[in-house]
Design a protein around this nucleic acid. Sequence first.
RNA 1: CGGGAUGUAGCGCAGCUUGGUUAGCGCGCAGCGUUCGGGACGCUGAGGUCCCGGGUUCAAAUCCCGGCAUCCCGACCA
Length: 469
Amino acid sequence: MAKQVLTPRADDFPRWYQEVLNKAELADNGPVRGTMVIRPYGYAIWERMQAEVDARIKVAGAENAYFPLFIPESYLKREAEHVEGFSPEVAVVTHAGGKELDEPVVVRPTSETVIGEFMAKWIQSYRDLPLLLNQWANVVRWELRPRTFLRSTEFLWQEGHTAHASQADAHAYATQILHDVYEDFMVNVLGMPVLVGMKTPRERFPGAVNTLTLEGMMGDGKALQMGTSHELGQNFARAFGVEFLDSEGAQQIAWTTSWGVSTRMMGGLILAHGDDAGLRVPPVLAATQVVVVVVRDDDAVVERARALTAELVASGVRAILDDKTSVSAGRRLTNWELKGVPVRIELGPRDLAEGVATVVCRITGEKSAVSLDGLPAHVQAELDRQQMALLGEAIAHREGNTADVTSLDDAREAAGTGWARIPWKLVGEDGETELATAGITVRCLTRADGTVPDADDEPDLVATVARSY
RNA sequence: CGGGAUGUAGCGCAGCUUGGUUAGCGCGCAGCGUUCGGGACGCUGAGGUCCCGGGUUCAAAUCCCGGCAUCCCGACCA
């Protein structure tokens, strides 16, 4: 019997995306336009993302703190480009406590301004630098076209904010976060071979002097910005008075950075790794790496499955038991497949009689009978192999759908199905505007050797252009 | 804000052109029975301000007017 779980995504990708969200029980739409409700299964994955990212942030030396959700409107107005860039999408509270407020407060769209205010208080001397802060929070941006996880009105993220004594230090730190935290996480945990580069001036964060980005290719060949790291120069420090005395006793203005990744990565995970049977979660990320499914309601089977689950947990695998035999086996198997649990172990009377379990790998689709003895070791090896297979598949997909071109027409053509790499000097600001009319943007600039440039006017830069979410 | 479309059960939809008894279907949900190794089947049942307001009519989900909301394509964006 042919099994067709979801709408074929080639026909209607947005609909396929929505079906995965619903059927894999990741998220629902919220009551207010553009907001989302993250369901427990989706949130468990987000918690794993948080844990992995947070650990890397701490290695990079930043500490967690928390700043207010409400920001005085006047703060936002202190940095000219920043207010201009954000005001269209800021939610403003004008009434509270039963009366109109003297000064409206905005719901943070990002926290550079409040944090800048406090950095100014906390920093007096070069000995106070660098100040490396991070916060896990929700922010609100009233975007015109919201989409669950990819561009929701409210989203969860991590925003790092740092202050440094010199431009070189700030640049080095923004770059360190880009590679050691974000790229490492995305490649090794998410299994996504992100393209790391620099945004063009047009695509820069409002108020930044340099925006670095990590771009992932989705299953349909579009690009998704998975994370960013900004050098803010002295723009915010000047606006908020983040000043310090250097070792010579001279008053200096600090150099700041900000960087973040968000629940958008949940959307990226779905769009990059999902297939027509639902989500596929990389084993390193998965909150549930293995599900042991009791195929039939049989005491001996239930008992053995429970023991096996305990064995797996004891061996360090994140495993759960599914003994809910009141629901038919076929339905449960399909549900776990939709949710993308990397390894499924099916145990029934037939398996038990032969001393084996049926091991099914979600990522490669392989199915095999494996002896119950030594199963935990086998499972661990299988998880590692599935992780590599998923990354390998994503790399092949990206390479197979990226074309090197030398004209804007060819770039437009290639962007119909994937990415195009084109010399930046053939594009320029005018070419960028022209491509934009066809819905194509310059995702980032890289050097010919693939490394991240220091400036957008370096010679021989390569622009990667694509459609995006 | 421009261009297109849609609002009917928890979800997905039909019915509207040509007004007419009690508004249907699939999925899901509840009960009983048979099933159970890849989304089982039968029977029974619960569940509805047909987006809102007004109008026409003996009679409106259906026709007319006004409003609201949502979705898709653009501009904005983690």
